[in-house]
């Protein structure tokens, strides 16, 4: 027992982090820190009163208010349009990038390409945001176009690594012998791709697209810099609201966003499990 308490390896038993003293306590505190604020947020979205910190009873009042708010409606539609378009573009680009970096002969500079593709994970988002602001301002001046295209393009760009990584992981884990066997059975390279590679890759593509969608839906920094007047997405609208009067309406919108994310990701995990 003394040995267990000291966390020293017991002969014949592999090292287990769970035997370190205080492990359970640290784990419990971590989970509370992670989830308590979210639970609070969700609970207060059902508050009947006007405060985000003073409980006055149960009500769906703020969900109704958010639902009826035209600004929220517009921002929601805009968020979904941007996220859907950006994740579609990012997924298509990432699929090609993943094929190009795993299903070709090794070429010089492939590590550099890998780093370039994942650049948005490494460059501080604020830097990208400022850079995009400047470049898009130039384009706006010369073309006069000020539509949603800028937001979609910006989101597609920073979503690429999030779509690329799961697709690439899936391809790397996929036995090349299926594609070799297809070629042996008279499938041309295009037929092999369409009938073998793409269907086997699809869980990775779906995972990549969902991740990209959620990341785009959630973005504040780049959106705040790139958006034109009247182009608020849900997160930037919420940020704007916080600067003024904070009501549980923000909680209600957050809860709805959370629900959408949880449902999407759960659906993906269930789908993925069935495929195996």
């Amino acid at each position: 027992m003394a040995e267990r308490a000291a966390g020293r390896p017991v002969p014949g038993r592999p090292f287990s982090v769970r035997r370190i003293p205080g492990f359970a306590g640290i784990a419990a505190v971590s989970f509370v820190l992670l989830y308590a604020p979210i639970v609070t947020l969700v609970v207060y979205s059902f508050n009947a009163g006007d405060s985000i910190a003073l409980w006055e009873g149960l009500s769906l009042r703020w969900f109704a208010a958010a639902w009826a708010n035209e600004q929220v409606q517009e921002a929601t539609v805009r968020s979904l349009v941007v996220a859907a378009s950006a994740s579609a573009i990012a997924t298509a680009v990432s699929t090609m990038a993943a094929l190009g970096t795993t299903r070709t002969a090794p070429f010089p500079g492939s590590m550099a390409i890998y780093a370039l593709i994942n650049q948005p994970l490494m460059v501080p988002e604020i830097v990208t945001a400022v850079a995009l602001l400047i470049v898009f301002a130039m384009i706006k001046i010369s073309t006069g176009y000020s539509g949603l295209g800028y937001l979609i393009a910006a989101h597609a760009a920073f979503c690429v690594p999030f779509a690329y990584l799961p697709i690439r992981a899936r391809l790397e884990g996929m036995d090349l012998s299926y594609e070799v066997a297809a070629a042996d059975l008279y499938a041309t390279p295009w037929q092999t791709f369409r009938r073998i590679t793409l269907p086997l890759l699809s869980p990775g593509i779906v995972a990549g697209a969902m991740l990209a969608f959620v990341i785009s839906l959630d973005d504040v920094v780049i959106t705040e810099f790139v958006k034109s007047a009247g182009q608020d997405t849900l997160p930037t609208y919420m940020l704007g609201q916080l600067r003024r009067a904070v009501t549980p309406e923000v909680n209600a919108i957050s809860t709805a966003l959370l629900a959408v994310t949880v449902v999407l990701l759960s659906a993906f995990f269930v789908l993925n499990r069935q495929r195996r």
Partner: peptide
């Protein structure tokens, strides 16, 4: 895919997303 030669692989390499019949018919379909 232009050689009238087929292979039985050591790992079999059966297509996991196709049924037995679809696997067997794959070459003829192509």
């Amino acid at each position: 895919f232009r050689r009238p030669v087929n292979t039985v692989f050591q790992s079999y390499a059966l297509f996991p997303h196709l049924t037995v019949a679809e696997n067997i018919g794959f070459g003829l379909e192509m």
